[in-house]
């Protein structure tokens, strides 16, 4: 049942009772560039009652939105709550079915679709709770997206780093919800990963006190910063570089990247094709949009677009990352660093 708020109004003999629902509205278009069209209609109050509405003409949304909605549904179901809402319009229903959204919101929907439609280059929303499931998912994922091996490198890389972050740091009650889609018109792969765990600020708090969710997000994107230690270079198991690598892959791809946690997000904007790509260890130097006081997302949601037109190969991208990493530290001139021995 939804929460009840009782309001006593002076002068009135009755007590007003207001039902509080968690509400989401799926707009006709919600991608990273215009994610506000989704967030502006998200009301996170009450995690046991979810009310879902959608645009009644057509819907095209980023896998980030798919993963977030499915994560909310997963949480409500885990808590024994109720999901209600309007029926999806017939035009958008096949798409939402294929992305796993209808099933998450109503497991007994009973709607049948042609599973072999040619437009299907997508990964429907899937729950990943263990390291082994992640391994299997990455193996299964790449053939479905029909990429070349070279195009697959950054996709596999991003998926591994983002999901491992969830499994290791989030305490999410159901792990990560992931989805992906290839968009032919823009020739890009979009990926969304969402959890309903403790969020970045709480995960960082063991080692870093941050004043706000936004501060925590910005700190987490700096290479070498991890919630598990204050030591440079991290612990034996965590280096704190996953988000930096992921942001860098989006930037070299000249595409969008978004991290949303608590009441804040960081959105990396597209890089102009006429300008050379420069990677920054400090996300404040990126062409980006950082917002606070958004509807509270319990946990973390990350979305990324990776262009398949990317001219730079993955090795060159890694070399740029290496250079950005080196610029972020002040090395003493008298210390000679050893090099690894390649044979």
């Amino acid at each position: 049942m939804p929460d009840l708020i009782y309001i006593k109004c002076p002068g009135f003999p009755v007590i007003l009772r207001i039902f509080v629902y968690m509400k989401i509205h799926i707009p006709n278009s919600a991608f990273i560039g215009n994610i506000e069209s989704f967030l502006n209609h998200f009301n996170p109050d009450n995690e046991t009652e979810l009310y879902v509405t959608s645009n009644q003409s057509w819907i095209s949304i980023h896998p980030l939105v798919v993963s977030m909605v499915v994560a909310l549904a997963e949480e409500v179901n885990l808590k024994g709550g109720v999901i209600t809402g309007e029926n999806f319009n017939a035009k958008s229903r096949p798409y939402l079915l294929r992305m796993g959204l209808v099933k998450a919101l109503n497991p007994n929907h009973g709607i049948l679709i042609d599973e072999h439609e040619s437009s299907g280059r997508f990964i429907p929303a899937r729950k990943i709770e263990t390291s082994q499931q992640l391994n299997q998912f990455i193996t299964d994922m790449v053939p479905l997206l029909h990429t070349t091996p070279e195009q697959a490198y950054p996709i596999k890389y991003v998926m591994s780093e983002l999901v491992r972050n969830v499994l290791e740091h989030s305490n999410s009650p159901f792990g990560a919800i992931v989805s992906a889609q290839y968009f032919a018109k823009s020739n890009r792969i979009s990926i969304g990963v969402a959890d309903r765990g403790i969020g970045i600020k709480a995960a960082m708090s063991a080692s870093y006190a941050t004043a706000s969710d936004l501060d925590a997000i910005l700190l987490a994107m700096r290479p070498g910063i991890t919630g598990t230690t204050k030591k440079i270079g991290g612990t034996e198991y965590n280096a704190g570089a996953g988000l930096f690598f992921t942001k860098s892959i989006a930037k070299v791809s000249r595409d969008f990247f978004l991290v949303y946690s608590g009441d804040a997000f960081f959105k990396l904007h597209k890089t102009n094709v006429a300008k050379p790509v420069k990677l920054f260890a400090n996300p404040n130097l990126d062409k980006a949009n950082a917002k606070s006081l958004l509807p509270y997302w319990q946990g973390t949601a990350v979305g990324i677009d990776i262009s398949m037109d990317i001219n730079q190969d993955f090795q060159e991208l890694l070399e740029l990352i290496r250079q950005a990493y080196q610029l972020d530290v002040k090395r003493a001139n008298n210390v000679k660093y050893k090099k690894p021995k390649f044979v």
């Binding site: 490198y153 290479p223 070498g224 204050k230 030591k231 440079i232 270079g233 991290g234 280096a239 570089a241 993955f314 090795q315 890694l318 070399e319 990352i321 290496r322 990493y325 080196q326 530290v329 002040k330 090395r331 003493a332 210390v335 660093y337 050893k338 090099k339 690894p340 390649f342």
Partner: peptide
């Protein structure tokens, strides 16, 4: 391969940063 070499170089460098540089 070159990708893996670059990643190994990154890790080896920042681990040494952790050894040689005072936070």
């Amino acid at each position: 391969n070159d990708q893996i070499k670059t990643i190994i170089n990154i890790v080896v460098d920042y681990v040494q940063d952790g050894i040689f540089i005072d936070p």
